[in-house]
Design a protein around this nucleic acid. Structure first.
Lengths: 141, 141
DNA sequence: GGATAAAGGTTGGATATCAAACCTTTTCGG
DNA sequence: CCGAAAAGGTTTGATATCCAACCTTTATCC
């Protein structure tokens, strides 16, 4: 076992996760949404309203990326943007009704993904994998 | 420890690896090259000449992506494209002198990355992490 | 209190990436 | 043989992503 491929394996695993999610979203007829939008929606399922800055931090993307992603979610009617009355600079993002309706579907997709990832991996192994990944993550910028 | 974040942790670790590589390439004054180009160059360090199809498979990218990446490497003078005489459809990619000169630098960058990733992780843990990652990779499309 | 700095967002420019459509060349079936 | 299918690449169009520059609004400092 050559442990020098670690970077390629991680990159490839991430690509596989992405492929699976895209495939599932397509299968469920959720058109025009990608995994990154899912991350935003998930954050909004758990947080009534969030400003762009915090949203960017939560999904770990550049704020300009989040501007674009949220723009698409607005265009598709899944979220709304509302200016803060206290601070004119701040914009809040919140789910629309249509966005709220996505929650059960997305949670199923998420569950399916997790089940699939961990297929054949026992709980102790799961914990070990997560522990080690977090460790190497901490070694990186 | 919540093992449901696995997808986010993997994605984030991969992003960290990318950030580190970009930072190193910049530090070394290798301008205009990204980690994906590195993958192509590495394949060429070990294979004299490769056609586009095999190259795409080796670096696990769509062939149209490889067309673009190789195009950039040609533009920067790191590789050359040569038509096969046997099969007019086939194009071979090979390192130029300038490309060959990158080998020691890239191998150092690669070594540094590996050292950094595995900092504080003993060999048994390394093998276990790679084993488990390969396992979950195999569960995905 | 008025200039200056900082903070929140957006815009613009660049790039990696993929899928689908396409073009050429080679192969294959009848 | 010859027409159809397959194979190797490229082009086109769309999207996610980042960084740097920018605009507004708020906070800070002398």
């Amino acid at each position: 076992m050559d442990t020098r491929n670690i970077a390629a394996i991680i990159s490839d695993t991430r690509a596989g996760i992405n492929r699976y999610l895209l495939q599932e979203l397509k299968r469920l007829g959720i058109d025009g949404l990608a995994p990154s939008h899912g991350a935003i929606l998930f954050h909004l399922f758990n947080n009534e309203q969030v400003n762009m800055k915090d949203l960017a931090k939560a999904v770990r993307r550049d704020k300009s990326t989040v501007t674009a992603l949220v723009g698409k979610l607005v265009a598709n009617g899944y979220v709304d943007k509302v200016s803060s009355t206290l601070d004119q600079r701040t914009v809040y993002v919140k789910l629309s009704q249509r966005g709220q309706a996505l929650q059960p579907v997305f949670e199923e997709v998420s569950r399916n993904l997790i089940d699939r990832i961990w297929r054949g991996v026992d709980e102790a192994e799961q914990r070990e994998l997560v522990r080690l990944l977090k460790k190497i993550r901490a070694n990186l910028p």
